[in-house]
Structures are given as structure tokens and as C-alpha cells.
Simulated scan of single mutants.
Amino acid sequence: MKIAIASGKGGTGKTLVSTNLFNVIQKEGSNVRLIDCDSEEPNVCQFLHGTLEEEIITTTHIPVIDGRKCTFCGKCQEYCSYNAIIMLPAIKTIQVIEDLCHDCGACSYACQYDAITENKKVTGSITQYRIAPNADVLESQIEIGIYSPVPIIGQAIAMADDDAVTIFDSPPGTSCPFIATVERAEFVILVTEPTPFGLNDLKLSVETLRKLNKPFTVIINRFGLGNAMIENYLKQEEISLLGLIPFDKKIATAYASGQLITDEFPEYFRLFESLYHQILKQNQQ
């Protein structure tokens, strides 16, 4: 089972949910893997500490166009769906805009004059940490200056183990990195908070997941902070509520110290254990 923990905005508690859900599953004895897909700001390893097992350097291919062989026919520019090639035939200039290139290979396919070769460019890394014999973490980390984290997210998710429960700690928002994560999940948990911003961005996430035809449920974090706006919306839209995490100072204190609340407080271990079994039940339906 592949579960994405997501939300429409940052700071709602995705990492709180993903790390503590991971902790409960591994302590129950099931095989589990947590993939930190927020490659621009990964923070799962602030809470889960293990033994470094492997680091994979990720790369992309950048086309290099030889102006001496190029006939300026325009085929490569025509085939590029991302407008990553600038061509000025009048002054015999052609150039690839690296930040727009998606490594699709269309330009190389289009060129009939062997004017295009490819160079490798480092985009980031995927690091594996062993947390327990039945549990590990994959942290994706994008290089500074890389335009899109989508390729590295895809590479990290491709390492998901079919024999384990896999949790994706998703990037915030509803843009391409969010979609690249949730589209590969079998089930999505949206974490929200009872604030106007939380409700607004929850609506965006719900709309996106419905268009993707992804089954999902909702956890309300910091429950008790605001009014019943989130609950009323869920009832109105007939969206299932998986659980509530209370607005509790000791959660904030533990989180700020890099501690797992399921280790520190028995009542929260029981809460996340209950959430996990509800997820299993919903997945079997």
C-alpha cells in the first residue's frame, strides 16, 4: 500500500502525521518505508534517525547543440513542448535553456544532422537510512538552483518497495510536485487545520484529487484551535474524516525538539495506531 500524506499548504502537520504513522507501523512489526518527497525542504530526518545505507546522486540530461553541424531547420525547437530551445537563424544562434528542459529527448529524436549530444547534470540526491530492521527512510534532496523537483520525486518514489507499506511525505501546495507525488499513491490523507487558510487550501487539494480520481480522507490537526468550518465543509462535500489531532501544547513542544509524539505520549501512540487500522480498513473496502 502506498499512502501519500498531503495538504494544500505548508505547516499543517504533514510531517507530524507521516513520521508518527511510520513509527507506529514499524513498531507493530510491519515492513514500512517513508519517502520524503518534499525535496526542496526535506525534514523527515529531523525526527527519524538511522544508519546511512546508500546515497544515490541523481542526474538529468541536458542537450548540447553543435552550431557547426546545425542547419537551423527548426525541427528541435518544433518538437520541444517546453519552449526550452531558442533559435535565431538570422544570426546563426541556437541555445538550450537548461531550466526549462525536461530531459524528454524529443530534440535529439528530431535532429537529423547529429547536431545534438547530451551532458549529464547533477540534480540532487536520494539518501537511504535504516531506522529498524523492518523500516527505512528515503530522503530526496534537490540541488540548489534546479528548477523543478519533479524528476527527483519520481526517482525516489520509483524506489518504493512493493512488500512494504510506503508513506509519501508530500510537498505542500497543489502544483506539479504535489501532483507528481499523489498520482503515484493508492490512497491520500489530506492534513488540514481549522483556519481560513487551511479551509481554502483544503478545497484546492480536494478539487485536484477528485480530478485525479484518487481516494482520500482528511485529518484535522490542531483541532480546537478554530471553529467548525472544516467539519461543516467535509459534511457538505461528503468527505470522510479519518481523525482529529488536538491543539495541544505538548505536541508543539515535542515537535520543536525533534521528538515523535508517539514515543513521548502513550495516548498519541494509541491515536495513530487507531488511524493506521482505519486506513487499512478503508483500503480493503
Rank of each mutant, 00 (worst) to 15 (best):
A4G: 11
A4C: 03
A6R: 01
G8M: 06
G11M: 01
T12M: 09
L21F: 08
R33E: 11
R33I: 12
I35T: 07
D36I: 08
P42E: 09
N43E: 01
N43H: 03
C45P: 03
L48T: 05
H49S: 13
T51G: 08
I57E: 10
T59R: 13
T60C: 08
K69A: 11
C70Q: 08
Q77S: 13
E78W: 12
Y79D: 07
S81K: 15
L88Y: 12
P89W: 01
C101P: 04
H102W: 09
C107W: 05
C111V: 07
Q112Y: 13
T123S: 05
I126V: 00
E139G: 02
E143D: 13
G145S: 04
P149G: 02
P149E: 02
I152E: 01
G154C: 10
A156H: 04
A158P: 04
A158V: 00
D162V: 10
T166K: 04
F168T: 09
G173M: 07
A185S: 10
E186Y: 09
P194S: 07
D201G: 12
S205D: 08
E207D: 13
L209Y: 00
L209P: 07
L212T: 00
E238T: 14
I251M: 02
T253G: 09
A254T: 09
Y255Q: 12
A256W: 02
G258Y: 00
L260R: 02
L260D: 01
I261S: 04
E264Q: 15
F265G: 06
P266T: 10
P266I: 12
P266Y: 10
E267P: 11
F269L: 15
F269A: 15
L271T: 11
L271N: 12
F272H: 00
L280D: 02
L280E: 15
K281C: 07
Q282G: 08
Q285T: 15
